[in-house]
Design a protein around this nucleic acid. Sequence first.
DNA 1: AATTTAATGTTATAAATATAACAAATAATT
DNA 2: AATTATTTGTTATATTTATAACATTAAATT
Lengths: 215, 215
Amino acid sequence: MRNKLLPEKTVERLSEYRRSLLNCLAQGRTHIYSHDLAGIHNITAVQVRRDIMFIGYTSSQRKGYDVNELITVIRSIIDTDDGLNVAVFGLGNLGKAVTHYFKGKRSRLNIVATFDIDESKAGQEYEGVKCYSMNDYKELIKSLKISIALLTVPGAAAVETTTKLIDAGIEGILNFTTVPLIVPDHVFLEEYDMITSLEKIAYYVKANKGLKDRK
Amino acid sequence: MRNKLLPEKTVERLSEYRRSLLNCLAQGRTHIYSHDLAGIHNITAVQVRRDIMFIGYTSSQRKGYDVNELITVIRSIIDTDDGLNVAVFGLGNLGKAVTHYFKGKRSRLNIVATFDIDESKAGQEYEGVKCYSMNDYKELIKSLKISIALLTVPGAAAVETTTKLIDAGIEGILNFTTVPLIVPDHVFLEEYDMITSLEKIAYYVKANKGLKDRK
DNA sequence: AATTTAATGTTATAAATATAACAAATAATT
DNA sequence: AATTATTTGTTATATTTATAACATTAAATT
Protein backbone atom coordinates (compact mmCIF):
# COMPACT_ATOMS: atom_id res chain seq x y z
CA MET A 1 0.00 0.00 0.00
CA ARG A 2 2.82 2.36 0.94
CA ASN A 3 0.69 5.19 2.17
CA LYS A 4 2.74 8.35 2.37
CA LEU A 5 2.92 9.61 5.94
CA LEU A 6 1.34 12.92 6.79
CA PRO A 7 3.45 15.86 7.96
CA GLU A 8 3.89 15.75 11.71
CA LYS A 9 2.36 19.17 12.30
CA THR A 10 -0.67 18.21 10.26
CA VAL A 11 -1.21 15.14 12.42
CA GLU A 12 -1.09 17.32 15.52
CA ARG A 13 -3.62 19.74 14.13
CA LEU A 14 -5.94 16.97 12.97
CA SER A 15 -6.10 15.74 16.54
CA GLU A 16 -7.00 19.27 17.62
CA TYR A 17 -9.54 19.77 14.86
CA ARG A 18 -11.30 16.58 15.79
CA ARG A 19 -11.93 17.77 19.32
CA SER A 20 -13.41 21.03 18.08
CA LEU A 21 -15.48 19.18 15.53
CA LEU A 22 -16.87 16.91 18.22
CA ASN A 23 -17.86 20.02 20.14
CA CYS A 24 -19.58 21.42 17.07
CA LEU A 25 -21.42 18.18 16.64
CA ALA A 26 -22.56 18.27 20.25
CA GLN A 27 -23.94 21.74 19.56
CA GLY A 28 -25.90 20.38 16.64
CA ARG A 29 -23.79 22.06 13.99
CA THR A 30 -23.65 20.09 10.75
CA HIS A 31 -21.24 22.18 8.65
CA ILE A 32 -18.20 24.31 9.34
CA TYR A 33 -16.10 26.69 7.24
CA SER A 34 -12.33 26.55 7.13
CA HIS A 35 -12.12 30.04 8.57
CA ASP A 36 -14.33 29.07 11.51
CA LEU A 37 -12.14 26.12 12.36
CA ALA A 38 -9.15 28.40 11.90
CA GLY A 39 -10.62 30.97 14.26
CA ILE A 40 -11.13 28.39 16.97
CA HIS A 41 -7.53 27.27 16.72
CA ASN A 42 -5.98 30.64 16.15
CA ILE A 43 -4.47 29.74 12.82
CA THR A 44 -5.20 30.68 9.21
CA ALA A 45 -7.95 29.24 7.05
CA VAL A 46 -5.37 28.28 4.44
CA GLN A 47 -3.63 26.11 6.98
CA VAL A 48 -6.86 24.31 7.72
CA ARG A 49 -7.67 23.76 4.06
CA ARG A 50 -4.18 22.52 3.37
CA ASP A 51 -4.33 20.01 6.23
CA ILE A 52 -7.66 18.76 4.98
CA MET A 53 -6.28 18.53 1.47
CA PHE A 54 -3.54 16.23 2.82
CA ILE A 55 -6.07 13.74 4.11
CA GLY A 56 -7.93 13.78 0.83
CA TYR A 57 -11.30 14.88 2.10
CA THR A 58 -13.34 17.23 -0.05
CA SER A 59 -16.40 19.08 1.02
CA SER A 60 -19.49 19.81 -0.94
CA GLN A 61 -17.87 23.08 -1.82
CA ARG A 62 -19.25 26.40 -0.68
CA LYS A 63 -21.24 25.00 2.28
CA GLY A 64 -18.09 24.28 4.23
CA TYR A 65 -17.07 20.90 5.57
CA ASP A 66 -19.56 18.32 6.74
CA VAL A 67 -18.70 17.97 10.42
CA ASN A 68 -19.67 14.36 10.65
CA GLU A 69 -17.82 13.29 7.55
CA LEU A 70 -14.69 15.15 8.54
CA ILE A 71 -14.66 13.54 11.95
CA THR A 72 -15.00 10.16 10.31
CA VAL A 73 -12.09 10.79 7.97
CA ILE A 74 -9.84 12.05 10.77
CA ARG A 75 -10.78 9.03 12.82
CA SER A 76 -9.79 6.71 9.98
CA ILE A 77 -6.42 8.44 9.88
CA ILE A 78 -5.54 8.57 13.57
CA ASP A 79 -7.44 5.75 15.21
CA THR A 80 -7.00 2.04 14.77
CA ASP A 81 -10.09 -0.11 14.41
CA ASP A 82 -9.79 -1.71 17.80
CA GLY A 83 -7.99 1.12 19.56
CA LEU A 84 -4.53 1.08 21.05
CA ASN A 85 -3.74 0.05 24.58
CA VAL A 86 -1.85 2.43 26.80
CA ALA A 87 -0.27 2.02 30.23
CA VAL A 88 1.09 4.44 32.79
CA PHE A 89 4.49 3.61 34.22
CA GLY A 90 5.05 5.20 37.60
CA LEU A 91 1.93 5.84 39.65
CA GLY A 92 3.20 8.80 41.63
CA ASN A 93 1.64 12.23 41.66
CA LEU A 94 2.12 12.79 37.98
CA GLY A 95 1.11 9.28 37.02
CA LYS A 96 -2.12 9.65 38.94
CA ALA A 97 -2.87 13.01 37.39
CA VAL A 98 -2.27 11.61 33.94
CA THR A 99 -4.46 8.59 34.62
CA HIS A 100 -7.22 10.77 35.98
CA TYR A 101 -6.90 13.08 33.03
CA PHE A 102 -7.32 10.33 30.48
CA LYS A 103 -10.15 8.52 32.13
CA GLY A 104 -12.21 11.66 31.63
CA LYS A 105 -11.79 11.73 27.86
CA ARG A 106 -13.48 9.52 25.36
CA SER A 107 -10.81 8.19 23.09
CA ARG A 108 -9.62 5.22 21.15
CA LEU A 109 -6.69 5.11 23.50
CA ASN A 110 -7.49 2.85 26.41
CA ILE A 111 -5.57 3.00 29.64
CA VAL A 112 -5.49 -0.67 30.54
CA ALA A 113 -2.95 -0.70 33.34
CA THR A 114 -0.66 1.27 35.61
CA PHE A 115 2.66 0.05 36.97
CA ASP A 116 4.75 0.96 39.99
CA ILE A 117 7.83 -0.41 41.70
CA ASP A 118 6.12 0.03 45.05
CA GLU A 119 4.78 -3.47 45.70
CA SER A 120 2.18 -2.14 48.11
CA LYS A 121 0.43 -0.35 45.25
CA ALA A 122 0.16 -3.52 43.22
CA GLY A 123 -3.32 -4.98 43.19
CA GLN A 124 -4.91 -1.66 44.06
CA GLU A 125 -7.04 0.27 41.65
CA TYR A 126 -6.81 3.91 40.74
CA GLU A 127 -9.57 5.55 38.72
CA GLY A 128 -10.80 2.08 37.89
CA VAL A 129 -7.45 1.05 36.42
CA LYS A 130 -5.53 -1.74 38.06
CA CYS A 131 -2.00 -1.15 39.28
CA TYR A 132 0.57 -3.88 38.75
CA SER A 133 4.02 -4.50 40.14
CA MET A 134 6.77 -3.35 37.84
CA ASN A 135 8.21 -6.85 38.13
CA ASP A 136 5.49 -8.22 35.92
CA TYR A 137 5.86 -5.68 33.15
CA LYS A 138 7.08 -8.12 30.55
CA GLU A 139 4.23 -10.59 30.62
CA LEU A 140 1.59 -7.92 31.08
CA ILE A 141 2.74 -5.75 28.18
CA LYS A 142 2.37 -8.83 26.00
CA SER A 143 -0.87 -10.22 27.41
CA LEU A 144 -2.64 -6.86 27.65
CA LYS A 145 -1.29 -5.83 24.23
CA ILE A 146 0.06 -2.55 25.55
CA SER A 147 1.69 -0.64 22.72
CA ILE A 148 2.07 2.86 24.16
CA ALA A 149 3.72 3.83 27.46
CA LEU A 150 3.18 7.00 29.43
CA LEU A 151 6.44 7.37 31.29
CA THR A 152 5.89 9.10 34.63
CA VAL A 153 8.55 7.42 36.72
CA PRO A 154 11.05 9.55 38.68
CA GLY A 155 13.89 10.87 36.53
CA ALA A 156 16.40 8.52 38.11
CA ALA A 157 14.45 5.50 36.88
CA ALA A 158 13.68 6.80 33.40
CA VAL A 159 16.49 5.24 31.38
CA GLU A 160 16.27 1.83 33.03
CA THR A 161 12.50 1.69 32.65
CA THR A 162 12.71 2.69 29.01
CA THR A 163 15.13 -0.13 28.26
CA LYS A 164 12.70 -2.60 29.81
CA LEU A 165 9.74 -1.23 27.90
CA ILE A 166 11.48 -1.39 24.57
CA ASP A 167 12.70 -4.86 25.32
CA ALA A 168 9.11 -5.88 26.01
CA GLY A 169 7.95 -4.56 22.66
CA ILE A 170 6.49 -1.13 23.42
CA GLU A 171 6.06 0.88 20.21
CA GLY A 172 5.49 4.42 21.43
CA ILE A 173 6.55 6.39 24.50
CA LEU A 174 5.30 9.68 25.83
CA ASN A 175 8.12 10.86 28.05
CA PHE A 176 7.00 13.01 30.98
CA THR A 177 10.37 12.88 32.69
CA THR A 178 12.98 15.53 32.00
CA VAL A 179 15.55 12.90 31.19
CA PRO A 180 16.51 12.68 27.52
CA LEU A 181 15.94 9.18 26.19
CA ILE A 182 17.53 7.25 23.35
CA VAL A 183 15.25 4.81 21.58
CA PRO A 184 15.59 2.65 18.46
CA ASP A 185 14.10 3.81 15.19
CA HIS A 186 11.01 1.67 15.31
CA VAL A 187 9.87 3.19 18.61
CA PHE A 188 8.13 6.52 18.40
CA LEU A 189 9.21 8.85 21.18
CA GLU A 190 7.47 12.06 22.06
CA GLU A 191 8.96 14.39 24.64
CA TYR A 192 6.58 16.11 26.96
CA ASP A 193 8.84 18.39 28.87
CA MET A 194 7.23 20.94 31.17
CA ILE A 195 10.46 22.56 32.18
CA THR A 196 11.44 23.26 28.60
CA SER A 197 7.98 24.59 27.79
CA LEU A 198 8.09 26.90 30.76
CA GLU A 199 11.63 28.09 30.16
CA LYS A 200 10.66 28.86 26.60
CA ILE A 201 7.81 31.01 27.83
CA ALA A 202 10.21 32.65 30.27
CA TYR A 203 12.57 33.51 27.43
CA TYR A 204 9.88 35.26 25.42
CA VAL A 205 8.35 36.97 28.43
CA LYS A 206 11.79 38.26 29.31
CA ALA A 207 12.38 39.42 25.74
CA ASN A 208 9.05 41.20 25.79
CA LYS A 209 9.89 42.95 29.02
CA GLY A 210 13.25 44.15 27.75
CA LEU A 211 12.34 45.60 24.42
CA LYS A 212 8.71 46.39 23.84
CA ASP A 213 8.69 44.47 20.59
CA ARG A 214 6.45 41.82 19.27
CA LYS A 215 7.30 38.16 19.38
CA MET B 1 19.50 47.34 21.85
CA ARG B 2 17.18 45.37 19.55
CA ASN B 3 18.57 41.94 20.29
CA LYS B 4 17.47 39.53 17.60
CA LEU B 5 15.33 36.76 19.05
CA LEU B 6 16.63 33.21 18.90
CA PRO B 7 14.83 30.54 16.88
CA GLU B 8 12.17 28.87 18.94
CA LYS B 9 13.60 25.39 18.56
CA THR B 10 16.98 26.63 19.64
CA VAL B 11 15.52 28.06 22.82
CA GLU B 12 13.92 24.71 23.56
CA ARG B 13 17.16 22.86 23.08
CA LEU B 14 19.13 25.33 25.16
CA SER B 15 16.83 24.58 28.05
CA GLU B 16 17.50 20.89 27.53
CA TYR B 17 21.24 21.34 27.14
CA ARG B 18 21.42 23.24 30.38
CA ARG B 19 19.96 20.38 32.36
CA SER B 20 22.45 17.93 30.87
CA LEU B 21 25.26 20.37 31.50
CA LEU B 22 24.25 20.70 35.15
CA ASN B 23 24.40 16.92 35.38
CA CYS B 24 27.86 16.93 33.86
CA LEU B 25 28.94 19.54 36.34
CA ALA B 26 27.60 17.46 39.20
CA GLN B 27 29.73 14.59 37.92
CA GLY B 28 32.80 16.82 37.99
CA ARG B 29 33.11 17.09 34.23
CA THR B 30 34.65 20.39 33.13
CA HIS B 31 34.47 20.11 29.33
CA ILE B 32 32.13 18.54 26.82
CA TYR B 33 32.25 17.98 23.05
CA SER B 34 29.40 18.87 20.76
CA HIS B 35 29.00 15.24 19.79
CA ASP B 36 28.72 14.19 23.43
CA LEU B 37 25.96 16.67 24.06
CA ALA B 38 24.37 15.55 20.81
CA GLY B 39 24.52 11.92 21.90
CA ILE B 40 22.78 12.68 25.15
CA HIS B 41 19.96 14.43 23.34
CA ASN B 42 19.74 12.14 20.36
CA ILE B 43 20.47 14.86 17.83
CA THR B 44 23.43 15.69 15.61
CA ALA B 45 26.60 17.46 16.69
CA VAL B 46 26.05 20.04 13.98
CA GLN B 47 22.75 20.96 15.54
CA VAL B 48 24.42 21.52 18.87
CA ARG B 49 27.18 23.65 17.40
CA ARG B 50 24.71 25.69 15.43
CA ASP B 51 22.62 26.38 18.51
CA ILE B 52 25.70 27.42 20.44
CA MET B 53 26.76 29.61 17.55
CA PHE B 54 23.41 31.42 17.83
CA ILE B 55 24.08 32.41 21.41
CA GLY B 56 27.54 33.64 20.52
CA TYR B 57 29.54 31.44 22.84
CA THR B 58 32.86 30.12 21.59
CA SER B 59 34.89 27.42 23.21
CA SER B 60 38.61 27.15 23.55
CA GLN B 61 38.48 25.13 20.38
CA ARG B 62 39.41 21.48 20.30
CA LYS B 63 38.93 20.86 24.02
CA GLY B 64 35.17 21.13 23.65
CA TYR B 65 32.93 23.51 25.52
CA ASP B 66 33.65 24.65 29.05
CA VAL B 67 30.65 23.30 30.94
CA ASN B 68 30.59 26.07 33.49
CA GLU B 69 30.88 28.86 30.98
CA LEU B 70 28.22 27.40 28.73
CA ILE B 71 25.79 27.08 31.61
CA THR B 72 26.43 30.70 32.49
CA VAL B 73 25.76 31.86 28.96
CA ILE B 74 22.55 29.85 28.66
CA ARG B 75 21.45 31.23 32.00
CA SER B 76 22.01 34.77 30.78
CA ILE B 77 19.81 34.01 27.79
CA ILE B 78 16.88 32.26 29.45
CA ASP B 79 16.80 33.48 33.03
CA THR B 80 16.03 36.91 34.33
CA ASP B 81 18.20 38.34 37.09
CA ASP B 82 15.58 38.05 39.76
CA GLY B 83 13.63 35.15 38.30
CA LEU B 84 10.06 35.10 37.12
CA ASN B 85 7.08 34.38 39.31
CA VAL B 86 4.73 31.62 38.31
CA ALA B 87 1.32 30.58 39.63
CA VAL B 88 -0.85 27.52 39.17
CA PHE B 89 -4.49 28.17 38.34
CA GLY B 90 -6.68 25.24 39.27
CA LEU B 91 -5.47 23.09 42.13
CA GLY B 92 -7.08 19.84 41.11
CA ASN B 93 -5.26 16.62 40.38
CA LEU B 94 -3.25 18.05 37.57
CA GLY B 95 -2.55 21.33 39.35
CA LYS B 96 -1.20 19.45 42.33
CA ALA B 97 0.97 17.22 40.18
CA VAL B 98 2.37 20.24 38.40
CA THR B 99 3.04 22.06 41.66
CA HIS B 100 4.73 19.01 43.12
CA TYR B 101 6.74 18.56 39.99
CA PHE B 102 8.11 22.08 40.04
CA LYS B 103 8.92 22.27 43.69
CA GLY B 104 11.37 19.47 43.11
CA LYS B 105 13.39 21.33 40.51
CA ARG B 106 15.82 24.14 41.10
CA SER B 107 14.94 26.88 38.75
CA ARG B 108 14.66 30.58 38.27
CA LEU B 109 10.95 30.07 37.95
CA ASN B 110 9.34 30.41 41.36
CA ILE B 111 5.91 29.04 42.08
CA VAL B 112 4.60 31.72 44.39
CA ALA B 113 0.93 30.85 44.53
CA THR B 114 -1.85 28.48 43.54
CA PHE B 115 -5.46 29.48 42.90
CA ASP B 116 -8.74 27.60 43.02
CA ILE B 117 -12.42 28.50 42.83
CA ASP B 118 -13.09 26.14 45.72
CA GLU B 119 -13.12 28.56 48.67
CA SER B 120 -12.39 25.74 51.10
CA LYS B 121 -8.95 25.29 49.56
CA ALA B 122 -8.09 28.95 50.04
CA GLY B 123 -5.70 29.53 52.91
CA GLN B 124 -4.40 26.00 52.77
CA GLU B 125 -0.91 25.14 51.67
CA TYR B 126 0.15 22.55 49.18
CA GLU B 127 3.81 21.63 48.83
CA GLY B 128 4.62 24.74 50.79
CA VAL B 129 2.78 26.97 48.34
CA LYS B 130 -0.22 28.90 49.54
CA CYS B 131 -3.57 28.47 47.81
CA TYR B 132 -5.72 31.53 47.23
CA SER B 133 -9.32 32.04 46.26
CA MET B 134 -9.77 32.71 42.58
CA ASN B 135 -11.74 35.81 43.61
CA ASP B 136 -8.55 37.55 44.61
CA TYR B 137 -6.63 36.83 41.42
CA LYS B 138 -6.42 40.42 40.28
CA GLU B 139 -4.76 41.95 43.30
CA LEU B 140 -2.51 38.95 43.90
CA ILE B 141 -1.19 38.75 40.35
CA LYS B 142 -0.14 42.38 40.76
CA SER B 143 1.19 42.24 44.32
CA LEU B 144 3.03 38.93 43.90
CA LYS B 145 4.32 39.99 40.48
CA ILE B 146 3.09 36.83 38.81
CA SER B 147 3.96 36.92 35.13
CA ILE B 148 3.44 33.31 34.06
CA ALA B 149 0.33 31.17 34.57
CA LEU B 150 0.12 27.40 34.54
CA LEU B 151 -3.45 26.77 33.48
CA THR B 152 -4.74 23.54 35.00
CA VAL B 153 -8.40 24.43 35.46
CA PRO B 154 -11.12 22.15 34.05
CA GLY B 155 -11.69 22.62 30.35
CA ALA B 156 -15.03 24.31 30.90
CA ALA B 157 -13.37 27.13 32.84
CA ALA B 158 -10.38 27.59 30.56
CA VAL B 159 -11.57 30.45 28.38
CA GLU B 160 -13.07 32.49 31.19
CA THR B 161 -10.00 32.08 33.38
CA THR B 162 -7.71 33.07 30.53
CA THR B 163 -9.63 36.28 29.97
CA LYS B 164 -9.19 37.15 33.63
CA LEU B 165 -5.51 36.37 33.62
CA ILE B 166 -4.79 38.48 30.58
CA ASP B 167 -6.84 41.30 32.01
CA ALA B 168 -4.75 41.13 35.16
CA GLY B 169 -1.53 41.46 33.18
CA ILE B 170 -0.24 37.89 32.83
CA GLU B 171 2.47 37.70 30.15
CA GLY B 172 2.82 33.99 29.51
CA ILE B 173 0.48 31.00 29.76
CA LEU B 174 1.24 27.31 29.70
CA ASN B 175 -2.07 25.73 28.72
CA PHE B 176 -2.61 22.26 30.16
CA THR B 177 -6.26 22.14 29.15
CA THR B 178 -7.32 20.72 25.82
CA VAL B 179 -9.28 23.85 25.03
CA PRO B 180 -7.77 26.04 22.31
CA LEU B 181 -7.19 29.57 23.59
CA ILE B 182 -7.02 32.89 21.81
CA VAL B 183 -4.66 35.42 23.35
CA PRO B 184 -3.40 38.85 22.32
CA ASP B 185 -0.02 39.19 20.66
CA HIS B 186 1.86 40.40 23.71
CA VAL B 187 0.98 37.25 25.67
CA PHE B 188 3.07 34.20 24.97
CA LEU B 189 0.96 31.05 24.86
CA GLU B 190 2.36 27.57 24.87
CA GLU B 191 0.07 24.60 24.37
CA TYR B 192 0.79 21.54 26.41
CA ASP B 193 -1.68 19.08 25.05
CA MET B 194 -1.38 15.48 26.18
CA ILE B 195 -4.17 14.21 23.99
CA THR B 196 -2.57 15.58 20.86
CA SER B 197 0.83 14.20 21.83
CA LEU B 198 -0.65 10.79 22.44
CA GLU B 199 -2.74 10.75 19.31
CA LYS B 200 0.32 11.69 17.34
CA ILE B 201 2.16 8.71 18.79
CA ALA B 202 -0.87 6.57 17.99
CA TYR B 203 -0.76 7.69 14.38
CA TYR B 204 2.86 6.70 13.93
CA VAL B 205 2.50 3.47 15.87
CA LYS B 206 -0.40 2.58 13.66
CA ALA B 207 1.56 3.50 10.53
CA ASN B 208 4.42 1.32 11.72
CA LYS B 209 2.12 -1.61 12.32
CA GLY B 210 0.61 -1.38 8.86
CA LEU B 211 3.67 -1.08 6.72
CA LYS B 212 6.96 -2.10 8.22
CA ASP B 213 8.60 1.16 7.19
CA ARG B 214 10.62 3.67 9.07
CA LYS B 215 9.18 6.83 10.47
C1' DA C 1 -30.37 31.72 -17.16
C1' DA C 2 -26.65 34.77 -16.44
C1' DT C 3 -24.10 37.02 -12.85
C1' DT C 4 -22.30 37.64 -8.50
C1' DT C 5 -20.47 36.04 -4.32
C1' DA C 6 -18.09 33.38 -1.10
C1' DA C 7 -16.29 29.42 -0.23
C1' DT C 8 -12.84 25.47 -1.37
C1' DG C 9 -8.66 23.00 -3.62
C1' DT C 10 -4.19 23.51 -5.46
C1' DT C 11 0.00 25.29 -7.23
C1' DA C 12 3.63 28.62 -6.23
C1' DT C 13 6.39 31.12 -2.94
C1' DA C 14 8.38 32.30 1.54
C1' DA C 15 10.03 31.33 6.09
C1' DA C 16 11.79 28.33 9.54
C1' DT C 17 14.46 24.49 10.62
C1' DA C 18 17.86 20.86 9.94
C1' DT C 19 21.73 18.89 7.56
C1' DA C 20 25.88 18.87 4.99
C1' DA C 21 30.31 20.59 3.58
C1' DC C 22 34.37 22.54 4.67
C1' DA C 23 37.75 26.03 6.40
C1' DA C 24 40.02 27.47 10.73
C1' DA C 25 41.95 26.33 15.00
C1' DT C 26 44.46 23.83 18.42
C1' DA C 27 46.11 19.93 20.91
C1' DA C 28 48.81 15.80 20.25
C1' DT C 29 52.29 13.31 17.76
C1' DT C 30 56.25 12.61 15.11
C1' DA D 1 59.06 22.61 14.44
C1' DA D 2 56.34 20.34 11.17
C1' DT D 3 52.65 17.18 10.68
C1' DT D 4 48.57 14.97 11.87
C1' DA D 5 44.23 14.42 13.97
C1' DT D 6 40.20 16.16 15.77
C1' DT D 7 37.06 19.47 16.97
C1' DT D 8 34.86 23.83 16.39
C1' DG D 9 32.58 27.79 13.67
C1' DT D 10 30.36 29.12 9.53
C1' DT D 11 28.60 29.24 4.99
C1' DA D 12 25.83 26.59 1.72
C1' DT D 13 22.17 23.37 0.80
C1' DA D 14 18.08 20.58 1.69
C1' DT D 15 13.91 19.68 4.02
C1' DT D 16 9.91 20.86 6.42
C1' DT D 17 6.40 23.95 7.39
C1' DA D 18 3.54 28.01 6.60
C1' DT D 19 1.68 31.55 3.67
C1' DA D 20 0.12 33.63 -0.45
C1' DA D 21 -2.04 33.68 -4.92
C1' DC D 22 -5.46 32.19 -7.72
C1' DA D 23 -8.40 29.15 -10.42
C1' DT D 24 -12.54 26.37 -9.50
C1' DT D 25 -16.89 25.38 -7.73
C1' DA D 26 -21.58 25.91 -6.23
C1' DA D 27 -25.06 28.52 -3.82
C1' DA D 28 -27.52 32.94 -3.97
C1' DT D 29 -29.14 36.88 -6.49
C1' DT D 30 -30.62 39.49 -10.24
